[in-house]
Amino acid sequence: MSGATGKDSSYPFPLAHDTYRISANVEPAAAPILHVGADHADVLALRSRILDGEPRRFVAAPHAAAASWDALVWLLDRMAREQAGVSLERDGHRYRWTNARLGVEQEFVFGDASTLPEHPLTFAGRQVEEDVVVLGARGDRLWLDAGMVVFASVWSLAFDHGMSFAELHGPVPSPEVFVRAERFLLRMPPGDAWRRLNWGLQLDDRPDLSLDASPAWGPRRRRLEVHDVGSEVHLRTEVQHLVRLPMTGAVLFLIGVRLLPLAAVAAVPAWSARLVSVLDTLPAEVRSYKDLGVLGPMAADWLRRSHE
């Protein structure tokens, strides 16, 4: 899908330095937090299609009810502040939600599941481009309590459900980064929002690289079947937001996927040079973790040649 390919000029190029090391790299979030691209409707339709076809893309522990409502209200309120044609009116525990762009109008009572057509997280998750994860804070640790994730990058929400923050990051090199990150998140005051960028390369423009769907994308990825590097290989930037939810203290983790073909990276010489430098100097364990053993040098060579 050409959807999340970031045709707008505001592509969040993720590399701030000529070398890359795994780090928490958080910065205070700035509005807008929720992305609305030119292909907004297509992205949302795809999200619903994936969720409806594979219900495992949504999980919620029974003890995540309050945090899920907390996340719902935060997300709807955020949309109402950032987007035109969207409003959230409140009268005590009663809310009226209007999303004119999608033709959604819904009244609901906070905490009363019978007043929404579906779980609060999927109700919200179908109306934002971002994947939504709720990390509950208990015993000085964070736990993956709930989420709707349809665009996972080589992980599975259903598999990770219930894991601690440390367990979630088990496969990542530099575990000490995540020890500090968890402590940072647990110290965040309610309502605070932070942003970080993550990145990778992939040889197609599928935002959904979930392990649940690996039969669809895995074989081609393993064969590294590429005919035209510039149009097929994509830079995948994940715009991640971390929000301390005001009522429950749970951490809301939002992941927005933005794909850009290498040809478009090459069109911005500074980006191209930066990506080449990063790929050339990537430490072995990061290269292996990001599965860039072959794809990395292939992309770097192509970018170098495109500037000859």
């Binding site: 003890h63 995540a64 309050a66 945090a67 804070a137 208990r138 015993g139 005051p189 309610p190 429950t248």
Partner: peptide
């Protein structure tokens, strides 16, 4: 901000 919260 509370450090004395219910455990869900």
């Amino acid at each position: 901000r509370s450090s004395f919260t219910p455990v869900e």
